[in-house]
Computed example of a mutant assay.
Amino acid sequence: MIQLKEISKTFYSKKNEEVTALKGVSLEVKQGEIFGVIGYSGAGKSTLVRCVNLLEKPTSGDVVVNGASLKNMSKNELRKSRQNIGMIFQGFNLLKTATVYENIAIPLKLTGISSKEIPTRVEKYLAIVGLEDKHHVYPGQLSGGQKQRVAIARALSHEPDVLLSDEATSALDPETTHSILDLLLKINREFGITILLITHEMHVIQKICDRVAVMENGEVIEQGNVIDLYSSPKKRTTKKFVNSLFPNDLPKEILEQLKKRGPIISMTFVGTSADKPALSQLSKKFDVDANILSGNIVQLKDKPFGKLVAHIQGETEETDKALHYLKEEGVQVDEVEINES
Rank of each mutant, 00 (worst) to 15 (best):
M1S: 11
I7T: 07
S8L: 03
Y12K: 14
E17P: 00
E18T: 13
L22D: 05
V29S: 11
K30Y: 12
K30N: 15
V37C: 10
G44H: 10
S46M: 12
V52K: 05
N53G: 05
L54I: 14
L55D: 02
K57D: 00
S60G: 04
V63Q: 07
V65T: 13
S74C: 07
E77R: 13
M87S: 04
F89P: 08
F89T: 09
F92C: 02
N93M: 01
L95P: 00
K109I: 08
S114P: 01
R121G: 14
E123C: 06
A127T: 11
I128K: 14
D133P: 06
S143F: 03
G145M: 09
A153P: 08
L164N: 02
E167D: 12
T169H: 04
A171I: 06
T176G: 04
I198R: 02
V204F: 04
Q206G: 01
I208Y: 02
V214N: 09
E222P: 12
L229P: 01
P233I: 09
T237E: 15
S244Y: 10
F246R: 06
L255T: 06
K259C: 01
K260M: 07
V270N: 06
D275C: 09
K276P: 00
K276S: 10
S280K: 12
S283R: 09
F286V: 13
F286C: 11
V288F: 10
I292H: 01
I297D: 01
I312K: 08
E315I: 10
E318V: 09
D320C: 00
E329T: 05
G330M: 11
G330K: 14
E335R: 15
